[in-house]
Design a protein around this nucleic acid. Structure first.
Length: 417
DNA sequence: TCTGGGGTCCTAGGACCC
DNA sequence: TCTGGGGTCCTAGGACCC
C-alpha cells in the first residue's frame, strides 16, 4: 500500500507554530513580491478567499475581516518541512519527498494501517506543531484521492484508507474530475464537454478513448484510478534537468543597468544551486519580459541561450554568459517587470567532458568557488560579483515577513520564566 | 497602483544518420 | 516514368504539479 502524507495549509501552519495568536483567525501567506495568495487558513478559505488571487483584489475583505497577512518566508518553511520529513523517515521504511509539504510513503508490510496511520498523523502534529493528513490506497493517484477525504472529514482523524473495491467506488463517485491529480484546467474542460464529471465516470471510459484524448499520461492515470499502480516510489534524489532562478521586480524598469544587476544575481544563485547539487551547466538561458497584465503598455518577451565549450558551475563564467545573453535580447523603450536565468544541459560534476582547447584552469576555479561558498555560508552575499550591485529598483517587496524562528540565532524565541 | 516561482513529462516535427 | 526504410536526437510548445 502507498500513503500520501501532506501538511494542512502548510505555510500558514508554519507561521502558526511560532505565533499561536494566529490560531482560529483567518491567515493568508503571499507569493514573492507580496503578489498573490498562495496559502490560506481554513478560516480564510471560509471567507471565500481563492487560491492565487492577487492581494489587491481582496484588500477590502482583508480589512473588514481582519485577515492576517504574511509575506512568504521560505527559510522557515523549508526548515519546518525538513523536520516533518526526517520524522517520517524514522517511522516508515521508505519515503519519496514529493514537494515541500508532501511525501509518498511505502507502507508495505505494515499491519493495521488505519491505526498506524492515525498514530503517525498524531505523532507528526505533536512533534512539529504542523497538522497533517494521510491518505492510503493501492496507487499514488488513489492515495491522493484518499488524502482529500482525510482532510475533509473530521471523523477520519487525519487518516483515510481506501482498501476495498467498495470504498474505491464510493471515493471515485465523490471526486469531481477537476480534483483528480493530473487533470488540470484544460483536460477537465475537455472531459466535462464529453459528460465526464467525476472520477468514477472517467474510470469507466474505454482505455482506447482515454489514450486518444490524453495520451499515455491519461492512460496511466486511468489504470491508477482503477487500482493498478503505475507510478512507483523512488527514494533517489534524481539529478535536476534544469535549474531556474527568476523574480518579478518590485517596480518596472527600462534600464539595462537594472536588468544586468538582476540577471547577474539570478545567475549567481543558479551557480550556487549547481554547486550544492554537484552539477555543471552546459548552457545558460536569460529571459526578460514586460508586465503581461499591463495591456496598455507595449509587450516584449525574449530569451537567448549561451552554450559553454566545457560545462561549468563557476559563478563568474555563468554571470558573464547570462549577461552576454541579456545584451543579445535587450531592447530599449520597454517597461520590464521580470527577468530570469536558467541553467540547462546539466551534467554531474563527476562526469564532466573536458574540452581539448579549454583555456580555463578548472582546479583554480573550483578552489575559488569553494572559498566563496564558505565565506557566504558565514555571512550571506558577503562576496558577490560586482555585476550584482545596483539592485535597489528591482528588489522584491516583502512587507509582512515573519522572523527566521528556526534558522537565525537572533530570531529564536526567548521564554521568560 | 498592486497579479509567484520552480519544476516535470510528453508529443510533433525537423534534421540528420546509415 | 521514376524518388526507401528505419532509426536517433533535438527543440518548441503544451499540459500538468506544488
Amino acid at each position: 500500500m502507498i500513503g500520501l502524507l501532506d501538511c494542512n495549509n502548510f505555510y500558514v501552519s508554519c507561521e502558526r507554530v511560532f505565533n499561536p495568536a494566529l490560531n482560529g483567525v483567518p491567515v493568508v501567506v503571499l507569493s514573492n513580491n507580496d503578489g498573490c495568495v498562495i496559502a490560506r487558513s481554513n478560516e480564510a478559505k471560509a471567507l471565500g478567499i481563492e487560491m492565487g488571487v492577487p492581494i489587491f483584489k481582496i484588500r477590502a475583505l482583508v480589512q473588514q475581516k481582519n485577515v492576517r497577512i504574511f509575506s512568504s518566508n521560505y527559510t522557515l518553511y523549508g526548515d519546518m518541512s525538513a523536520r516533518v520529513m526526517s520524522l517520517l523517515r524514522t517511522k516508515v521504511p521508505q519515503i519519496e519527498v514529493y514537494s515541500i509539504d508532501e511525501s509518498f510513503l511505502d507502507l508495505n508490510g505494515i499491519k493495521n494501517l488505519e491505526i498506524f496511520g492515525r498514530q503517525l498523523v498524531a505523532k507528526i502534529t505533536r512533534c512539529t506543531g504542523i497538522p497533517v493528513s494521510l491518505g492510503i490506497a493501492t496507487s499514488k493517484t488513489l492515495a491522493k484521492v484518499a488524502n482529500k477525504f482525510a482532510k475533509k472529514y473530521k471523523g477520519y482523524h487525519g487518516c483515510c484508507l481506501i482498501d476495498s473495491e467498495e470504498k474505491r467506488l464510493v471515493a471515485l463517485k465523490r471526486t469531481n474530475i477537476e480534483n483528480v491529480w493530473g487533470i488540470g484546467r484544460r483536460l477537465s474542460a475537455k472531459l466535462k464537454a464529453e459528460g465526464i464529471l467525476n472520477a468514477y465516470q472517467f474510470s469507466l471510459l474505454p482505455p482506447a478513448k482515454v489514450r486518444q484524448m490524453m495520451t499515455v499520461v491519461g492512460a496511466r492515470l486511468w489504470r491508477e484510478l482503477n487500482g493498478e499502480p503505475c507510478l512507483f516510489l523512488s527514494d533517489e534524489i534524481e539529478n535536476k534537468k534544469q535549474i531556474c532562478n527568476a523574480r518579478s521586480f518590485g517596480e518596472m524598469t527600462q534600464s539595462l543597468d537594472d536588468l544586468s544587476a538582476a540577471t547577474a544575481l539570478h545567475a549567481t544563485r543558479c551557480a550556487e544551486k549547481l554547486r550544492q547539487q554537484n552539477l555543471c551547466a552546459g548552457a545558460v538561458l536569460t529571459f526578460i519580459q514586460t508586465n503581461r497584465f499591463r495591456e496598455d503598455l507595449p509587450q516584449y518577451f525574449n530569451q537567448a541561450l549561451v552554450s559553454f565549450p566545457t560545462a561549468t558551475n563557476d559563478t563568474l563564467e555563468i554571470v558573464k554568459a547570462a549577461l552576454q545573453a541579456l545584451r543579445q535580447i535587450f531592447k530599449t523603450g520597454y517597461d520590464y517587470k521580470k527577468c530570469g536565468v536558467l541553467a540547462l544541459s546539466l551534467t554531474p560534476e563527476a562526469h564532466l567532458q573536458g574540452d581539448l582547447f579549454d583555456a580555463k584552469n578548472r582546479l583554480k576555479s573550483a578552489a575559488l568557488m569553494s572559498c566563496l561558498d564558505k565565506l557566504n555560508a558565514q555571512k550571506p552575499s558577503c562576496v558577490v560579483s560586482a555585476a550584482t550591485c545596483h539592485l535597489e529598483r528591482t528588489a522584491l517587496k516583502s512587507a509582512y515577513v515573519s522572523k527566521h524562528f528556526t534558522s537565525d540565532w537572533k530570531d529564536i524565541i526567548q521564554v521568560k520564566i
